[in-house]
Design a protein around this nucleic acid. Structure first.
Lengths: 131, 131
DNA sequence: CTATTTTTGCAACCGGGTTGCAATTAAACA
DNA sequence: TGTTTAATTGCAACCCGGTTGCAAAAATAG
């Protein structure tokens, strides 16, 4: 398993994820690092960090990829944190929901992972729309 | 709410979904109707059937859209069936899982719907790989 | 300090999905 | 049945998230 090299770009991306446990989409990061880092580089760093157990990823309502910091316990061998994500259908923001759930079993099939995406309206957008 | 007209194309798409409760992806349908129906038409019919409460849709692990027949009770006003979907990471096939779950509440936010995607290896692929 | 391996930038590409518009076709209604 | 009106379709061009191949640059091992 290739070691992740400590490059300027990797440090920059890690800084983002270490500063908050919120998810960021590849699109957001590409925009944020525009002029500083090529989009291909961003995609590849995210891949490596996910494969290395540093980040986990999920697919949002629109098919876009989001990434967030893993809890302790995840590794390149296995992602152990299994929690839902919330997405606001108004502003698009996502959030890790700090509740565990277990993988349900499905007759015959072998279930290995799951994505649980809750969709609705976030607190901020609720407030804005109530006037 | 615009009524869905009974066109040759709509009938053809409905025939597929009425013949099985399995989900089909837009890509599969576009390929199936290749030469008979424009891809734009397929996308638009799927949109209309979803908005009309005839089909429900979900996003798979690669960001692709899948559609399946709704149970009774769904309408253009509301989709009432809330069930997980399973996707085989080997063959890509998906399946509606016939188990209900309820929308969890998430502090502050208003949760309106959810997508619960289970990922693993389906029975067929398990068998194939055991030799 | 050199050899080796990974990482990066770039440009071109891929593919699912959308858009605008003109031509058809279904439904409404006389 | 014929006409009017509104929905549907096909087409071509487009959008955009994500990938690929390759040569140059930067990390690490020794």
């Amino acid at each position: 398993m290739a070691v992740i090299r400590n490059t300027r770009s990797v440090r920059a991306v890690l800084e983002i994820f270490n500063s908050s446990k919120n998810p960021y989409s590849s699109v957001q990061l590409i925009d944020y690092f525009k002029g500083e880092m090529n989009k291909t580089t961003v995609y590849r760093i995210l891949d490596r960090l996910r494969d290395g157990g540093v980040l986990h990823s999920f697919t949002d309502k629109n098919g876009l990829q989001w990434y967030a910091k893993c809890q302790d316990g995840c590794s390149s061998h296995e992602h152990v944190d299994l929690h839902p994500h919330f997405q606001c259908k108004d502003c698009g923001k996502t959030e890790c929901i700090d509740v565990d759930f277990t993988l349900p079993s499905v007759g015959g099939h072998k279930v290995e992972s799951a994505e649980f995406l809750l969709v609705g309206v976030c607190v901020d957008c609720l407030e804005k729309s109530s006037f």
